[in-house]
Design a protein around this nucleic acid. Structure first.
Lengths: 262, 262
DNA sequence: CGTTACTTTGAAGCGCGTCAAGTGGTGTGG
DNA sequence: CCACACCACTTGACGCGCTTCAAAGTAACG
């Protein structure tokens, strides 16, 4: 059932045929949500995981005065909360940005399946790490890039992620987000998102019409965005490179005594 | 040896005496780093974890043109990378902000210890989840708060985290950061950090002198910052509350058919 | 075909960045 | 012991990027 999730996990961690079957059998039920409906509320204690089957959602935080920040987009194949620990008290809400269909997986089933299959366990760990890497990149995106760069970077990320689940062709994908949705994700007002989009359009970097995003020259957009996709691709298996010596093993030479401790 | 880590894990997940012993024995060697020295470089493939024993460090990302964003502060007891998967290709660098002493733990030792002790495994999972929660909060902090709120929020987080490892008394702690270090973490220029600090001082919300931060009225600062510490406290064990029904189980009533799929 | 929601455009204002000069504390070398 | 250099902090002036408010235009949907 969860095609996109399986495709993504297989791509990054490798799954056996048995593992794929086990994942399919994990899904007990599916659920529908309308646009703007909350899948999860901040403070909920989850005993199951939901996986996005179709549609887009977002994780967001809200202040008492109504200001909102989208901290992640959830695309088909994405998991709505950490699939590793139950019960899981979440510190964010999840809302559907389009009509969404999800698969519900019981937490105990999840854990026992991960116990039976090291491959599935590893796949979910890697996926959780990848999610954390995206979160780090979003912090940096909002913290140090200009409006133009932020939106360009977001678009680069989205098409790359959609590509990993087979939902983007070479240079275009659907983008079912309002300019306000974009603004809340990159920390800009909707008005300024509008002006920035027109700037990107005028530069020939994107076309965006009727929820269809096209990137005629990905390398150009990537360069504007300072986009480096390595945070999105955690390769499977041992990736150790003997030619590369980590900094943490290189320091013996300069290592000296302490001068003062904080 | 890693007192602060053990204290933190015990506080959030609960550790048996055996687990604490096992953690202590995990440490094979320690290392010293000077201020501004890199512990980890972006792109390194780690086969071990480092734990901060003393001093402060930061995770950061850097663009080609030199702009830097600090995406996390590492305090005593914090782990420098994810302790769950090896080899681990990291997408950020880690730099000492003060002289730092770290404990080095071999990745295989880490994993086999986690296999032998479910308590230790659970503790590191929860700690990893807590780190991810902090990252989400940082994204929101930089994305939607004003300069005044951002810095106030950061200070609230720091004292709360230091308190968890026993390095802050009731209303004060050391803050061995330059104003530039602060600015790179909250996405502001050092000059504006300076002005904002003086604003906070003038409001009587903080005193900050000779790397000593004092918060005379924590509730007042928390209110300015819109700080809610729940993202920092993942309680141990089943926290399920039967009186609270998650949104994802509440939707049957409004659940309707799809209108359109993205 | 009317209504609603999203996008677009303009004008005004503020928060924050940048540049630049000056201050104070700390360690260093003569 | 003093002079100097260095670094972090401070302060002022100016400008830009982005926000806000407001209104008009346009596409989607019942």
């Amino acid at each position: 059932m969860p095609h996109h999730l399986i495709r993504k996990l297989d791509r990054s961690a490798g799954l056996s045929a048995n593992d794929k079957d086990a994942l399919t059998r994990l899904v007990r039920e599916t659920a529908w949500f309308n646009t703007d409906q909350d899948l999860i509320d901040e403070g909920d204690t989850l005993r199951q995981v939901s996986v996005i089957l179709n549609g887009w959602a977002c994780c967001y935080k809200q202040l008492a005065d109504g200001r909102r920040q989208i901290i992640a987009y959830l695309l088909p194949g994405d998991v709505c909360s950490t699939p590793l620990v139950f019960p899981n008290l979440v510190d964010y809400s999840v809302r559907a940005l389009t009509p969404v269909r999800t698969a519900r997986i019981d937490g105990q089933d999840m854990l026992s399946t991960m116990e039976r299959s090291a491959g599935i366990a590893r796949a979910f760990w890697l996926d959780t790490l990848a999610t954390a890497a995206i979160q780090r990149e979003w912090t940096a995106n909002v913290g140090l890039r200009t409006a133009r760069e932020r939106i360009a970077h977001l678009f680069c990320e989205i098409v790359t992620r959609l590509h990993a689940v087979g939902l983007a062709d070479q240079d275009s994908c659907t983008l079912p987000l309002t300019q306000e949705d974009l603004g809340e994700a990159v920390g800009l007002s909707a008005v300024h998102v509008n002006r920035t989009l027109q700037d990107l359009r005028a530069s020939g970097l994107i076309t965006l019409k009727r929820q269809q995003l096209t990137i005629p020259d990905f390398a150009a957009l990537r360069s504007v965005a300072h986009f480096d996709d390595s945070y999105l691709c955690r390769r499977a298996g041992p990736v150790f490179d003997a030619n590369r010596v980590p900094a943490s093993q290189r320091l013996d030479v300069e290592r000296v005594g302490p001068r003062m401790l904080a």
